[in-house]
Design a protein around this nucleic acid. Structure first.
Lengths: 358, 358
DNA sequence: ACACCCTTGTTTATCGATGCACCAAAAGCG
DNA sequence: CGCTTTTGGTGCATCGATAAACAAGGGTGT
């Protein structure tokens, strides 16, 4: 069963030096030996096809070149893309990525965090930050570095090592301004049960943009999904569908909808179609994230893009930096959102005439 | 910098026993001690909030409760879903999952495999199996177990520890039979550059189903994407779009298309729309995988579902079994595909009359 | 009464890489 | 020439958990 492991000892023997010298070669401490000796060791390593046992290195150093990534679900297009780019960025820096689907469940998050800590992982990137982070405090006390992708809570800043997020207020403004510019006045918001800081800020951005045109966002125009158990982020599809149907069934339905994200927006497409509403003629929809499918839908989804590759690379860079001890205290990377106009938004049309049908 | 680690020694001291006894408690060797002693140790562990250092355990045993997962890209809806369910299944069995995006590149696969091996990972699940597997032989020789998700090459069976795949021949048959049943006779195939065994079998299934009705699948009706560099599995979208346009621009365009997977199929929706073809009136489309979006598209995508949760759970179960030394030699799990009929397929319509427009 | 075994532990060696203390030989130096 | 310093290494302890070998006390069969 046991595989014949080629260790540093065997290499040392083959090269006629001590294990320490081989170790020095591996770690590039060239000043510690003659060039001739180093070459001899290197060729011995090559000949034996030797790779240092990473497990032993990590064990000895206590440092683990691995970062943990917690996302609601990698099956979600958005978080899947995040995972992809985080892995790429980490790989580039010699780090591995352990992935965990936590379905936004606090106890899952903690369990997974414990496992990571026990495995020597000291840096974790947290997708979809929850407010508050208090359940992570025990982990942090034991030396874990926490980085957040997509939000930083107003309170509990001290818990977070680093974070990257899009300017949520601006996201809200961009979506609202775009719709206002098209002439919409009755604008609804379709959102999930998540109450993160980012969500609040986005809502605030929407509100202030609307207010600048004298439009108010009444509570009746905010549809919030109920939280139901296994939030694997794809149920947004169904929630968006339900939400838009309820919004459109009101006496005075909105002419435009700002969706929590593209998944909700795509659900909204289906919900609107269920009621015979045509997009964008009867209803304009703005999403968020710009997932791959946004461009392929018919009509194309107007959405606010967050640059996942940049954000992923940024947060990984900062986290890796911190893990090697040279980071700032609490860096925050702010990414700029971008409005992508496609076919799902247009000036308000004949929505009122269609109302009777429902 | 160094975090005060609570080790087995500290617990032993606190409980007034030896480290070995604590180890025995951890590993449930209850017969080795009195119940009273065990309880004392357990409460000491609780009091000190002790977790065994997984790194040390792995280092000692050489066994690593981690499995590697190589997929073309987790950003792809299908592989994202696979990653999700593999992670769940592994987590359930106490395993972690290291993820790697290999973009179907051989040297990336090998590099990642080397990294895994150095980290003590002995079991790897390979998404989208490439033929042949020879580049993995050096890894296998050093004790790595390879499992394949989605295909098993005809040759090189000995390299593969385990595999799970859908009955590809049946997939082909199901798609073709469905279209034949609707009355289609001119059926095209839209496929990527990948030449895996599964693809061959699927094509064979299509061919034999068509042949049973006296229909032939000419080479002019098989559109193959060119391979271009970074195959991150989402370019299928663009490829499907291009492919369908080329197919529809021929003198005698097909009335139905079988796409390599749902991504290609969605691309085909866009391509058909580009040319003014309406689905399913002018063109029927059958996909493969049944990704989440298949149900949300307008019209819904008729597709062949592979049960990702079952397959993921199956392959993880087998692999974990093998890693603990009690597995069969080369088990293969075969999953049954299922035809999901939605709105993208219908009897052939007025396609010929539209032909002039292009 | 003596050999033998079972229970309930303890001591010791080990996995592979690494940091620290140490040391022999060569080189500099007044 | 006797002294220190530099060069180019070697040997040993160590990280935390664990398997193997061993031991002390008590019962048991003959």
């Amino acid at each position: 069963m046991k595989v014949a492991a080629i260790g540093i000892q065997e290499v040392a023997r083959a090269a006629g030096v001590s294990a320490t010298t081989v170790s020095n070669v591996i770690n590039g401490r060239d000043a510690k030996m003659r060039a001739e000796t180093r070459d001899r060791v290197i060729s011995a390593m090559k000949a034996m096809n030797y790779t240092p046992n990473a497990l032993a290195q990590q064990f000895k150093s206590g440092q683990n070149k691995t970062i943990g990534l917690m996302v609601p679900s990698v099956a979600s297009p958005f978080w899947g893309a995040v995972a992809h780019h985080v892995e790429r960025a980490a790989h580039l820096r010699g780090y591995r990525v352990l992935i965990g689907n936590t379905t936004r469940d606090h106890s899952e998050e903690v369990r997974y965090g414990e496992m990571l800590l026990a495995s020597g992982v000291r840096g974790v990137i947290l997708g979809s930050a929850h407010v508050p982070f208090d359940h992570f405090r025990p982990l942090l006390d034991r030396g874990m570095q926490l980085a957040s992708f997509g939000g930083r809570p107003a309170e509990g800043n001290d818990l977070l090592g680093a974070s990257v997020s899009v300017d949520a207020d601006l996201v809200g403004r961009l979506s609202a301004m775009h719709l206002l510019g098209l002439g919409h006045r009755r604008i609804a918001v379709l959102t999930g049960p998540i109450r993160s800081e980012a969500h609040m800020q986005r809502l605030a951005g929407i509100r202030s943009a609307l207010a600048s045109q004298g439009v108010e966002l009444g509570e009746d125009l905010i549809w919030r999904a109920q939280n139901r158990g296994s939030s694997d982020d794809n149920e947004g599809l169904e929630q968006g569908r339900i939400g838009v149907r309820e919004l459109l069934a009101t006496p005075e339905p909105p002419t435009a909808i700002i969706a929590q994200n593209d998944i909700f927006a795509i659900g909204a497409y289906a919900g609107a179609a269920d009621l015979g509403f045509s997009i964008p003629r009867d209803l304009s929809i703005v999403g968020f994230d710009d997932i791959l499918f946004a461009a392929v839908l018919r009509p194309g989804l107007t959405t606010i893009r967050q640059s996942v590759p940049d954000m992923a690379d940024g947060i990984v860079a900062v986290l890796v930096n911190q893990l090697s001890g040279k980071g700032d205290a609490h860096p925050h990377i702010r990414s700029t959102p971008e409005l992508i106009v496609r076919g799902s938004t247009a000036p308000p049309g004949a929505a009122n005439t269609r109302l009777a049908s429902s």
